[in-house]
Amino acid sequence: MCLAVPARIVTIDEIHAWVETMGVRQRVNIQLIDSPKPGDYILVHAGFAIEKIDPEHFRFLNDTLYEMFEGTENE
């Protein structure tokens, strides 16, 4: 039900930040995020950052998926 895209924080302006997704910058509200910093990866839904994305898990999204997925095998 809920459309959200990953983005990287570029600059912060009080309760807002400019964030970048695939070469597109948009201004989003960051009040729901704990101590946001430029460079942080976040998930954006309807103009708000709704959660930080673990940079360890970010990379190319699939890498983590494959690792976790393979971790479920033979359990």
Binding site: L3, V5, T21, M22, G23, V24, Q26, V44
Partner: peptide, 10 residues
């Protein structure tokens, strides 16, 4: 284009 992808995803 990646920008088109970005905006249409958003």
């Amino acid at each position: 284009k990646s920008e088109v992808h970005g905006i249409s995803d958003i």
